[in-house]
Amino acid sequence: MRFRRGLATFAAAVTAMVPAVVLPAAVPASADEVNARYNVWTWNVAGWKMHRGATGNGLITALANSIRNRHADFAALNELCRSQYKAVQSNLRASGWPTDVENFSRFQEHNSTACNGEPFGLAIFSRQPMGPAARFPLAPDGSLERRQLLCAPLEARPHLRFCTTHITPSNDVIGGVKINERQLGEVLTVLENYHAAGDTVIIAGDFNAQPDYGRMNPWYSRNLNVPLNGGNRGDYRELDDTHADSPGYGETTVAAGDTSGPGGQGKKIDMIFVRENRIVGTYTGDSLSISTACGGACSDHRILIGTVTVRVTT
């Protein structure tokens, strides 16, 4: 369901200032490429903070049902306890969601004991079998977590990689560098290295930075220059950046009550990025209302979904 702000005058003003986000012409696939369309799904589930690692309180059923109902090809989960990861695996496996029930998910811990003695971290899931995971530790943020970038290719399309990350919310200066900004740069460097090697990457996760922040300018495409998101010098599109009410920014991805986004809407920190020159045609993104099937709100973040066609080297 679309998030609707009460600030109708703000939305109208933004729309009047910019007719639409204009995309460059799509580049068709070459002889050694294929165009492939994917549905992407991501959620920060606050698995320990709000659920204390629980697997029987409705969270697992709610998220697995959403993955199936949204026909996701790729799914990413942040802030997940390992027992919750295993429960998601079991739920999806039992429903026949993945094509290969033994090779459709990967887990990466951020802390080995944060969930009452068990690992805590992030995970990716794929409808199609995946190849070996690549794991990239990010710069320490001074906490007990060691944040990571987790990526894996499709087994049948090794030049297509799906990644997730959960960037630290802190932007304190550590070692002379702002740590959120440094981690964002580290992740972007890995993605650009993949691109230079001929790979197409879809990344979904919690970036803990809003689209209009200066630290996101190296990410967002230089072709995106709108009132809510200008000064960009990057090469990537976020799949919700064509949202009609907030072009260039997108919908909030946090719980109701936050007003730190433009015009008083909730902030957007969960994102799905694809490099612009790998996108074919139009793409879409949407932020979903938070389920209350967990004896209350299932998370302090909203599920973010997106659909995109990408060019992949065969």
Rank of each mutant, 00 (worst) to 15 (best):
N57G: 08
C81V: 12
C81W: 01
H71N: 15
S143I: 08
F120G: 01
M130G: 06
G142H: 09
P137F: 02
N78C: 14
N103Q: 06
T55R: 01
G56I: 04
G96P: 05
Q108A: 14
A114Q: 13
P98W: 01
R68D: 06
P129F: 08
R52G: 12
A134D: 15
G131W: 04
P140Y: 10
R68K: 14
P140H: 08
R127Q: 06
N69A: 14
D100P: 06
A64T: 10
R68G: 06
A114G: 09
A76H: 06
I60C: 00
I67Y: 00
A72F: 01
E79R: 13
R82K: 15
Q84K: 13
F107H: 06
T55S: 01
H110A: 14
R68F: 11
C115P: 03
I60K: 00
C115R: 03
S66W: 03
R135T: 15
R106M: 10
R93E: 07
T61R: 06
A139L: 05
C81R: 04
A76C: 07
C81D: 11
L138D: 04
R52P: 08
L63Q: 06
D141L: 07
L80C: 08
Q84L: 11
L77D: 02
N91W: 14
V101I: 13
P137E: 10
C115Y: 01
T113L: 12
S143G: 12
L63R: 00
M130L: 14
Q108C: 10
A75L: 02
P140T: 09
I67S: 00
R135Y: 14
A76M: 05
L138P: 08
L144W: 14
L63A: 05
D73F: 00
N116D: 11
R82N: 13
A75K: 02
A62I: 06
N103P: 04
R52H: 12
